[in-house]
Design a protein around this nucleic acid. Structure first.
Lengths: 188, 188
DNA sequence: TTTTTATGAAACATACTTGTATCATAAATA
DNA sequence: TATTTATGATACAAGTATGTTTCATAAAAA
């Protein structure tokens, strides 16, 4: 089933998602008029494609989560070890700073749309599996709760995002810092 | 200069700040009517004490930053070492989860009120000094950018906040996890 | 090319939010 | 207790966001 979607719709959708991601990240009270203008699209078109503001936000959230998934899906096959997979993960995710910023600002997915939360949950579970793999291969401490390690990944992404905002730097440098901190902390 | 403030005003202010912190953390589009209702105060009173919504948000932000400052001001005199001070800091800040959540949701203080940003900046500098102290005493790596370590503190607070939201646990347990991760990471 | 479909402008209705003004009442000072 | 001051209910004005409908136009699809 090809289900060809009109080229105009695809173009409009892409522009709206992008503009919404940008504006709503900066100011979560941005209006749909603002977003339509930024997207170079009529307000009517926006309402035709996304019935309500809620649905638009949901669509953007799903787009962001999908971006993460696409960026990390080939990760396990490329990694030499479970621990190495975390390094690759940091490298893969840092270019998606716009998507990250949107999800950060959105906050508390648990209290939002259940479908969105389910996707988030599934991705968190994937990371949890990676943690278990690292524990199994002996490269990760078993004394630390798995949930903590999973959230630490998110916390280090946040750390990197803050650092990059103050003083922009190469994504790889941030990824190396995050991975090093993840493994060894900052003391000596 | 005693500058006695009417007891009614103090009570109203406290209730409004608390209610605003709670509601705006959950939903940054909460209206002043919502906040007044939650605070058990007339809408008129809210407008009399805080001219505009912007000023209310600013007042709450300053309250939150002040809370952090008060919680950590005696920290350096109590700590046995610069590294130990970080442990005490985590312990002191975790009880302030409501304040933390509000500032997280507010986001990007740099683009907000300059007075608020100045306070934040000063506190970040205090932490930077602590990092330098730890480097000087030889307990912290000098290969890692100071700004990264400062933001790591915030990132670990975020990690702890996420973990606690999923599965509430004693603040001290979280503080120990955060400090251990801060020092050693999670690998072995 | 012809047909179908998406677009954007305009006008419209509704509801909500901000912010102000008035005034009787209640509570804190003095 | 007498006086001052804060409060909250009500009403009001203005602005803005949301969401809908219509219709001529432009651009895809057939």
């Amino acid at each position: 089933m090809p289900e060809q979607i009109d080229a105009r719709i695809q173009k409009s959708q892409a522009a709206i998602i992008k503009a919404g991601m940008q504006l709503l990240s900066k100011n979560s009270e941005a209006s749909l008029s603002d977003i339509a203008r930024e997207a170079g699209v009529g307000r009517t078109t926006l309402y035709r494609l996304y019935d309500t503001k809620e649905k638009l936000i949901k669509a953007i959230a799903i787009h962001c989560l999908d971006s993460f998934e696409r960026a990390t899906e080939q990760l396990e096959s490329e990694a030499k070890s479970a621990l190495h997979a975390f390094h690759l993960m940091f490298k893969a995710i840092f270019p998606l700073s716009a998507e990250m910023e949107f999800l950060m600002k959105l906050g508390d997915l648990e209290e939002g749309d259940p479908e969105v939360f389910a996707i988030y949950r599934r991705q968190a579970n994937d990371i949890a599996e990676l943690v278990k793999g690292a524990q199994a291969e002996g490269s990760m401490s078993k004394d630390i709760p798995i949930a903590w390690v999973v959230n630490l990944v998110e916390g280090l992404l946040y750390t990197a995002w803050l650092t990059n905002k103050e003083k922009p730097m190469k994504h790889d440098v941030l990824a190396d810092l995050a991975f090093h901190t993840f493994c060894n902390g900052v003391a000596r």
